[in-house]
Structure formats: C-alpha cells, structure tokens
Amino acid sequence: MTRLPRLTPASLTDDQRELYDAIAGGPRAGGPFPLTDAEGALTGPFNAMLFAPPAGQALQRLGAAVRYETALGDRVRELAILAVAAHWDCAFERYAHEPAARAVGVTDAQLAAGTLPDDLSAVEAAALRFVDALLEGDVDDVTYAETVPTIGNRVAVELTTLVGYYATLALQLRVFRVTVPVEQP
C-alpha cells in the first residue's frame, strides 16, 4: 500500500499542475511504461514529486537530463539504471527499465547476469565497473585509472549523476511504498 495518496489532475495546485505537465508532456511520455493510471494520476516516483513541487521540478529536470541529454550510450545508460535497481532491490525501476534495456539491444541473458555481464563492449564494461564502484560507495584510484581513460571524464560525471538520481528515486519508491502496477488482463 502506498503511503502517499494518488493525486489526480483535478486535485492539483498550480505548482503541482506545472510539474505534472512537465513530466506527462515531456520526453518520458514516449517511454516504456505508462506515466499515468486510469484516473490520470502519475505512476512510479512521479506522484511523490508532486507533494514538493520545487524539489520535484528540480528532480524531474535532472532525470530528463540524465536520460535524454547525456553522452551515455543507450545500453550503458539502461544497464547502469538496472544496476542501481538491483543494488537497491527496486522493483519499480526494474519494471520501468527492463523493457527500455531490451529496446536498445540488451539481451535477457545480459539482464540475468547482473550488473556486469560477460559479453559487453570495452566501453560498456568500463562504464559498468565504474557504476559498480559507485554503488559500493566510492571509485578507488585503481578503478578510476582503469575506467576513466576508456569512458572519459564527461561520462564519469554523467554516470555519477545518474547513479545518484536513480538511488534517490529508489529510496523514495521504498519509503513511500510505491509498487509496480498490476497488469490488467
């Protein structure tokens, strides 16, 4: 049971409506899962953002940037998101991003392998080693020296930001008990 009431479009304040429109009408609208339920309430982490519109606006802008405005390859981005989901045991992030990963060529075998599948390109493997280190709490000097020359400084910064963003979402999803939508037959 979710801890926050579902906010429908008719119940929103002006600030909430502006945020709702930015989420529902932005680049996420074409994503792999429905952003709204049958009543128009936002799904996943997005409903929680409506309860604090200034923070929600900043968070949704950051999320849009790490999803749609980075130098990260699509496969690296989705594998990194799924590594965060696995680390935080976040069912909603897996629900939302496994279809996106498959759509960019991540195989079921790679998904099942965990955070560092065997059959990745050199860039993908380096990026995911960097992500694994971030998820353990820090990137030591050896890992940094072994990965950053392959992925570059920009990708290192973007991966660090992506891991922080999706860790924030995973925490909110857990605290507010947001569950994966039940599929309708």
Rank of each mutant, 00 (worst) to 15 (best):
T43Q: 15
Q60C: 11
L19C: 02
L72F: 00
A100P: 08
F33Y: 11
V142Q: 10
F51G: 01
A156Y: 12
A170Q: 04
R129N: 13
F92Q: 09
V182H: 13
P34L: 00
R61F: 06
P149D: 02
I81L: 03
A170K: 00
E78H: 04
A83E: 01
F130D: 10
P32Y: 00
T161I: 11
T161V: 15
V76L: 02
F92Y: 15
Y20Q: 08
R3N: 12
R174K: 13
P5A: 03
R77D: 08
P5C: 00
F46H: 15
G44M: 01
P53K: 01
R28F: 15
R154F: 07
G105M: 10
T70N: 06
G114Q: 12
G105H: 03
V139C: 02
A133V: 06
D14W: 06
D74L: 14
D14T: 15
E183V: 13
A52W: 04
A58N: 07
A41Q: 11
T13A: 01
T36I: 09
V84L: 06
R129L: 08
C90P: 03
V84T: 06
R77Q: 02
R75I: 12
E124L: 11
L72I: 09
A96M: 00
T8Y: 05
C90Y: 05
D140Y: 10
L120P: 08
G44I: 13
D108E: 10
R77H: 07
T107W: 11
T150D: 11
T70Q: 05
A58K: 15
N153Q: 14
M1K: 13
V163Q: 11
L173H: 13
L171D: 06
E124K: 08
P32V: 08
G31Q: 00
A127D: 10
A83R: 00
P53A: 03
A64E: 15
L171V: 13
A127L: 09
R75E: 14
L159F: 03
A127T: 07
A64Q: 13
V84F: 05
P27W: 09
V139W: 08
D141V: 04
V157H: 09
L7S: 01
G164Y: 10
Q184Y: 08
A101G: 02
E136Y: 06
P54E: 00
R174D: 14
A113D: 01
F130C: 07
E93T: 01
P181A: 02
L7P: 11
E78Y: 11
Y68D: 14
L82T: 02
